[in-house]
Simulated scan of single mutants.
Amino acid sequence: MAIKVYGAPGSTATLRVRACLAEKDLDYEFVKVDMANKEHKKPEFLARNPFGQVPVFEDGDLTLFESRAITQYLAHAYPDKGNSLIITDPKKMAILAVWIEVESQKFEPTASKLVWELILKSMLLGMSPDEAVVDEHEKKLEELLDVYEKRLSECKYLGGDSFTLVDLHHLPNLKYLMGTKVKRLFDARPHVSAWAADIQSRPGSIKAFTA
């Protein structure tokens, strides 16, 4: 088996790559990295990713890290496998690129902070969330989802009329947030709510989160 993914099952970045592999219907070997024992900081792992973060991806002699770079590679390297995930028309591709940047630069920082405070902080450290931080990032998320609501009133998905990488990139944080009180912010916006339900119900999404 040529493809390997080194990662942690609950890691949002790892889940992003696994969701992409599921969408592309590609077989791979998953190598669990024991983050609690700091395997990601040991020399053998640092040789694959000098930043000591998961996931690391291998396809034959190619080694990659950074989840969005990995999904871009998979979408372009395996165009005839599974679902496309990309757009080839230059103008539509540029619009897709804009929303990919929105996810990484605006959604990810806010959503990941909420995931940390509302879920992971308690799970990993046994600590309660900082409500001031939660309130601050809820407000940021509300403002962003207002923009999403307008966008999704114009097209079914953020990149256009088909499911693409930008929708997929949202999935891990979105999945976590749907289990918190923040879900109400998505539910309050009908187009956002429909989009969130749609992308979570895809077979590839379900497979990635239950594997």
Rank of each mutant, 00 (worst) to 15 (best):
Y78A: 11
D135Q: 12
A2R: 12
E39Y: 08
S162Q: 14
E103M: 03
I87Y: 04
E66D: 00
L64T: 01
P55W: 02
P55A: 04
S205G: 05
V133C: 12
W195D: 03
D89N: 12
Y6H: 13
L118A: 06
K92E: 14
L144D: 00
N49Y: 00
F209H: 14
Y73K: 06
V54W: 06
G179S: 09
K140V: 03
E136R: 12
Y148L: 03
K38D: 11
E131M: 11
V102H: 09
E29M: 00
L177G: 06
K113T: 15
P90D: 10
F107E: 07
H40N: 09
L177E: 08
N173L: 02
V102G: 09
E108Y: 13
Y176D: 05
A97P: 12
H191K: 13
C20T: 07
K41A: 14
G160P: 05
D61P: 06
D198I: 07
I100H: 08
K181V: 10
D198Q: 00
A211L: 15
E142V: 13
P50C: 08
K91M: 02
S104Y: 05
L177F: 09
K113S: 13
L165A: 08
P79M: 00
P55D: 04
Y157P: 10
D59S: 06
L15Y: 01
H40R: 11
L174D: 02
V134H: 11
R68N: 04
G160C: 05
L144R: 11
H137L: 08
Y28K: 11
M93E: 13
E143F: 13
P172Q: 00
V166W: 05
W116I: 02
K113R: 13
P129H: 07
E101T: 13
E66R: 01
V56K: 01
W99S: 04
K181L: 11
R16H: 03
G204P: 07
A47H: 02
S84F: 09
A69S: 01
M127I: 08
K183N: 08
Q72T: 09
A196R: 04
K183E: 13
H40Y: 01
Y28C: 04
Y78H: 12
V166Y: 05
T180W: 11
F30H: 10
R16I: 01
L96F: 05
Y28E: 02
F57E: 00
K81Q: 11
A208F: 12
A69N: 01
L85F: 01
L21V: 04
N49K: 12
D146P: 14
S104K: 13
D27I: 06
Q53I: 02
S193R: 07
V54D: 02
G126R: 01
I206M: 12
D61A: 11
I199Q: 05
E58N: 08
Y157I: 01
A47R: 04
E154I: 04
H191A: 15
A94F: 02
T88P: 10
K150M: 10
L114S: 07
F186P: 11
I95Q: 15
D34L: 02
